[in-house]
Design a protein around this nucleic acid. Structure first.
Length: 678
RNA sequence: GCGCCCGUAGCUCAGCUGGAUAGAGCGACUGACUACGAAUCAGUAGGUCGGGAGUUCGAAUCUCUCCGGGCGCACCA
């Protein structure tokens, strides 16, 4: 069963519809013939199109129960299936498979009208909240953050395409040690006051320089400064670090003012960087408000009341409020539970997980408190709000979602599990079930790439398959650097090809291609595979890449431009063709590749649902590539505009129209634009 | 010590709820631009799916075990 309530009578694409139809028909037969009602009927696609389009191995499963050979059962079922709308025939294959052949004309008609189903989208009524990006606002974004934001943004697009209402949040830890570290850098390494920092921000702005890049270096310098000198120095610097952190958390002093200036300026840069990729946010909740609006106090009451937290009187956690681990749920008897997770320290302060529990109660509307809101960043079509203590009225409402997705790398799975465990323990079982840690593996650098970038790489690291990026060490590829590099590369290609277009147009196309390449690169890997980053792979525009798919779109569009017609007009003509004609064009050895393309075009919603059910956008990326590949193959084999038979020409044009529509839709869901030319 | 992830072609990766002959891209080698633009297409070579056992009519997929690699397991944030 799916995670969410099923949506009855939802429009389906060809595959979904026919699969459902066949399944229902099979159930009828099994009921009438054997008085059986199996829970599920497995449906699959045969290895070769010549065997049919749908298949079921149901006869194998029934063999034992019915004490008959699978082949005999399959024959009996096939005999009983008779005729079914949308299907041409059923037959037994192999040792007992039941294969179904579609009525290709009917299938093509359904695929041609496919936009009705998908465009309607059908509101599932679910209100989801996706949190992604969440970069500490103390340095520039790097490639690891790009993977996070692209995965998150794409998933948002998929949820919206399926009809969900989605709020996009970017959590900002503006009062953590990481921000404290750059503040230490400004105060003690550079000797700057709040006024100096303000002047620096102005100066950088006037020069068009990036404050996040400035902080990238300062952060790395400060981190290494902590490690330098004699032990006494180190201890003193560590004390300074935590004193700074506490001043920032407390607020209302010059240190906090610098932290606010820097974190806000860096945050703006992050939003600008992500906007280059078409990534936008609705709300930016900040840790400073979670602290100052006392979210924790409200959560603490609930945690104590429900018994999730208990006070430890002995053992190593004596004097703390602790929670049992998710992996170790019950251990109430006999002695202190030293393995428990500390939520409130013996000095009375709350840990990160504690604050996170409070924040997640808010996300589900269970906290009984809310942020103040003020506008922060204006997008062409909407406003992005940020948390504040005393908000402005009126403001939109955030939080109170039914389902949440946290796009956070897999290293955080432990703390995420703790939060889910707390929710469950508090009795919020439904919410815990709809809490998804959308985890993914890191982006690392290949040793070769690290050397190429001029970093000192140890012997040990050189022998590894990849090296983890580190903001603290200043080791990694900055997001904007990569985007700039990609645009420069695509611009060179576009300049060589599009000699008649003007500067602005060429730049626009180059950006679309560069972003397409980047987004596709980050999406083509499944979430739990580590990406060992290399410029050679990321800067590739051939083969399984975003530009490959975009190029297929451009080719399809060119057909209609040169043919002086439109996809809409063509599909209207196609509707008038006789079924016999369409069936003829889609049948036979030479037509298999065309039929393959139509079939692929007819499974978009199926892939969408699979992506959502598994939280895996990579499936859609692959679907887009395969669609483009099959279209390119079709494009080469069949020259459309010189086709002499007018009916066949209409059919070929309709094929291109459907492919074009699907490619553009899929690319849109991946957040990739379809250029007019390449 | 405990937990999670990974191991599939020379390289980088797919492989949907177990299903028929394990697929792409890159790289290598052959071919195809006077066609709707070759950022393309067609073809060839290349795999005991880390090893072993088990479950099953049927395993890359599920279970166990071993080997190899990565990441987590703080009163840090």
């Amino acid at each position: 069963m799916g995670r969410f309530p099923s949506t009855p009578s939802r429009p389906c694409d060809v595959y979904q519809e026919l699969k459902k139809r066949l399944e229902a028909h099979l159930r009828g037969v099994l009921q009438a013939k054997y008085d059986l009602q199996p829970d599920t009927i497995a449906m699959e696609t045969p290895p070769d199109l010549r065997m049919g389009e749908l298949a079921t191995p149901i006869a194998f499963e029934l063999a034992r129960k019915l004490r008959k050979a699978p082949k005999i059962i399959a024959q009996e079922i096939v005999a009983a299936l008779g005729h079914l709308d949308g299907f041409a025939s059923f037959e037994v294959a192999g040792a007992g498979y039941i294969n179904a052949r579609l009525d290709r004309a009917a299938g093509a008609r359904m695929a041609a009208g496919g936009e009705a189903g998908a465009a309607a989208g059908v509101a599932s009524g679910l209100h989801s909240l996706v949190e992604h990006t969440s970069i500490n606002p103390n340095k520039a974004a790097h490639i690891g953050h790009l993977r996070n934001a692209i995965l998150g943004d794409t998933f948002v697009r998929l949820l919206r395409a399926s009809g969900q209402k989605v709020d996009v949040q970017n959590y900002i830890d503006n009062t953590g040690v990481q921000v404290a570290d750059v503040v230490v850098g400004f105060l003690h390494l550079e000797g700057k006051s709040a006024a100096d920092v303000r002047a620096l921000l102005e100066e950088l702005k006037s020069k068009g320089a990036r404050i996040d890049y400035y902080c990238w270096d300062l952060y790395a310098r400060t981190s290494s400064w902590y490690e330098q000198g004699i032990e006494e120095d180190k201890a003193a610097r560590k004390r300074l670090r935590y004193a700074t952190l506490h001043e920032i958390e407390h607020g209302g002093n010059e240190t906090a003012e610098i932290a606010e200036l820097i974190s806000t300026a860096v945050l703006r840069r992050h939003l600008e960087t992500m906007l280059r990729l078409g990534i936008e946010y609705d709300f930016l909740p900040r840790e400073s408000e979670i602290l100052h609006l006392k979210f924790w106090e409200a959560a603490f009451d609930q945690l104590k009341k429900t018994g999730v937290l208990y006070f430890e009187n002995e053992g190593k956690n004596k004097g703390c409020w602790v929670m049992s681990r998710a992996t170790n749920p019950v251990q109430n008897q006999a002695g202190p539970e030293d393995d428990a997770k500390v939520i409130v320290r013996s000095n009375g302060t709350v840990t990160y997980v504690g604050k996170d529990i409070a924040y997640h109660l808010w996300k589900f509307g269970l906290l009984g408190r809310d942020f103040g809101y003020k506008p922060f960043f204006t997008y062409p079509n909407h406003e992005c709000w940020i948390s504040t203590e005393n908000g402005e009225e009126p403001h939109p409402h955030f939080g109170g979602a039914q389902a949440i997705y946290n796009v956070i790398d897999s290293r955080q799975s432990d703390p995420q599990a703790n939060v889910i465990q707390a929710l469950r323990g508090m009795g919020h079982v439904e919410q815990a079930d709809r809490y998804t840690h959308f985890s993914y593996e890191m982006v690392a650098l290949t040793p070769r790439c690290a050397v190429e970038l001029g970093y000192d790489v140890s012997e040990e690291d050189l022998s590894r398959p990849y090296i983890e990026v580190s903001g603290r060490k200043g080791f990694g590829v900055k997001a904007d650097d990569l985007i700039d590099k990609l645009i420069a590369a695509t611009r060179a290609e576009v300049d060589a090809r599009q000699t008649s277009r003007d500067e602005a147009e060429r730049q626009r196309i180059a950006e679309q291609i560069a972003i397409g390449a980047l987004r596709y690169f980050m999406l083509k890997y499944t979430r739990n595979s580590v990406i060992a980053f290399d410029f050679k792979d990321a800067l590739s525009f051939e083969g399984e890449t975003g530009p490959y798919i975009q190029y297929a779109v451009v080719r399809a569009r060119n057909i209609f431009r040169k043919g002086n017609t439109t996809p809409e007009a063509v599909l209207a003509e196609f509707a008038k063709l006789a079924d016999e004609a369409v069936r003829g064009y889609l049948t036979g050895e030479a037509a298999e590749d065309i039929w393959t393309l139509w079939l692929r075009a007819g499974r978009r919603t199926l892939v969408l649902e699979q992506c959502i059910a598994t939280s895996e956008p990579a499936h859609l990326a692959r679907h887009g590539f395969q669609l483009a590949q099959e279209f390119n193959n079709f494009y080469h084999k069949h020259h459309i505009l010189t086709e002499e038979d007018p009916a066949r020409k209409t059919f070929l044009l309709a094929t291109a129209a459907v492919a074009l529509r699907e490619l553009v839709t899929v690319l849109g869901w991946l957040g990739i634009e379809s250029p007019e030319a390449m």
